[in-house]
């Protein structure tokens, strides 16, 4: 692998340089992850004071629990909508930014400044602006379109608002990566399209999307992980899983079982399920992309 690797001889030196990283990943990543697996076979009593080995009971309990299965279904739906929504909006904005010729720099700044929006800020701001009684969005939705938003009590509305918040928070990130991918399209291809008179829409679908596919695969994976793990602050600040568990995503259920009910074994089992689900999804996404993406 290159000429570089023979620059320094001492193996000991290499291990010393790696020591901080290795120590940190073992202490804070591998050890706790294995512990999670171990904990998932135990049941916790008396607010975490006592434990007992129960084998797979935690898992069978979870898979038999209507609340948990609903949470899994909700999370899946949430992930699918958030991934597709944030990718679609991101692609639209990135493509417009790529196409525009006047004021490109100004648009670029205007479009990417929502990048790095803290999830907690996104949640808090939308909680207020879409508030059922004092929210300005709610007010105009009703005044202009006659839509009455009462998402503190109507389940599907709560789910919708949280989903919109999650998409909004993630779009800036997707725009940046998609624009980078678009900028890598060789200029000669653009010129060929212009000379051939290819329509804008066909150009996007037939030329740019295939060329962007490695970036799209990367973004699908990242956005999936975000939907599963990164949306916690939104739920915690906006709905606390309600109304009537309509936004009770798996990550929120896990948090409640672990830190409100002190049911550490059950929570660990949920961590394991989350891991298996996300790892499995990532694997499938990468396998599928192997077949369709143009690297």
């Amino acid at each position: 692998m290159g000429v570089h690797e023979n620059t320094y001889d001492s193996s000991l030196g290499a291990y010393l340089l790696l020591l901080p990283t290795l120590a940190a990943i073992i202490a804070f990543l591998y050890y706790p992850s294995l512990q999670t697996l171990r904990f998932s076979f135990f049941q916790t009593f008396l607010f975490g004071q006592n434990t007992r080995f129960v084998g797979l009971t935690n898992f069978t309990d979870l898979l038999g629990s209507q609340v948990y299965l609903t949470s899994v279904g909700l999370t899946m739906a949430f992930a699918v909508i958030v991934v597709i929504g944030s990718l679609a909006v991101g692609l639209l904005v990135a493509f417009l930014l790529y196409e525009v010729s006047d004021g490109k720099a100004a648009y670029l700044i205007a479009a990417i400044w929502p990048y790095a929006l803290p999830t907690a800020v996104a949640g808090t701001v939308l909680l207020f602006l879409a508030h059922p009684s004092v929210g300005i969005y709610t007010h105009y939705l009703e005044a202009w379109f006659g839509i009455e938003l009462d998402w503190f009590t109507v389940g599907w509305q709560g789910f919708a608002v949280v989903t919109v918040a999650a998409i909004w928070k993630q779009v800036g990130y997707n725009v940046i990566f998609m624009l980078a991918a678009l900028n890598n399209v060789p200029e000669s291809l653009n010129e060929a399209c212009r000379l051939d008179g290819i329509e804008t829409w066909r150009r996007l679908v037939r030329v740019y999307l295939p060329l962007m596919s490695p970036t799209l695969v990367f973004l699908v994976v990242i956005n999936t992980i975000y939907a599963f793990f990164g949306s916690f602050a939104l739920i915690d600040l906006m709905t606390q899983g309600g109304p009537t568990n309509a936004t009770n995503l798996m990550i929120y259920q896990l948090y409640r079982d672990a830190f409100q009910f002190n049911n550490l074994g059950l929570a660990s089992a949920q961590s394991v399920i989350l891991f298996v689900l996300v790892a499995g999804l990532t694997f499938v996404q990468l396998r599928v992309s192997d077949r369709y993406a143009h690297y």
Partner: peptide
């Protein structure tokens, strides 16, 4: 070397929620 590099990269699969309970206990 390759094994260690893989070990480092593979940590991407363990976001905080996957190890939150033991991490807190620790």
């Amino acid at each position: 070397k390759n094994a260690i590099f893989f070990l480092i990269l593979f940590t991407l699969m363990f976001p905080v929620p996957v190890r939150i309970v033991p991490l807190y206990e620790m």
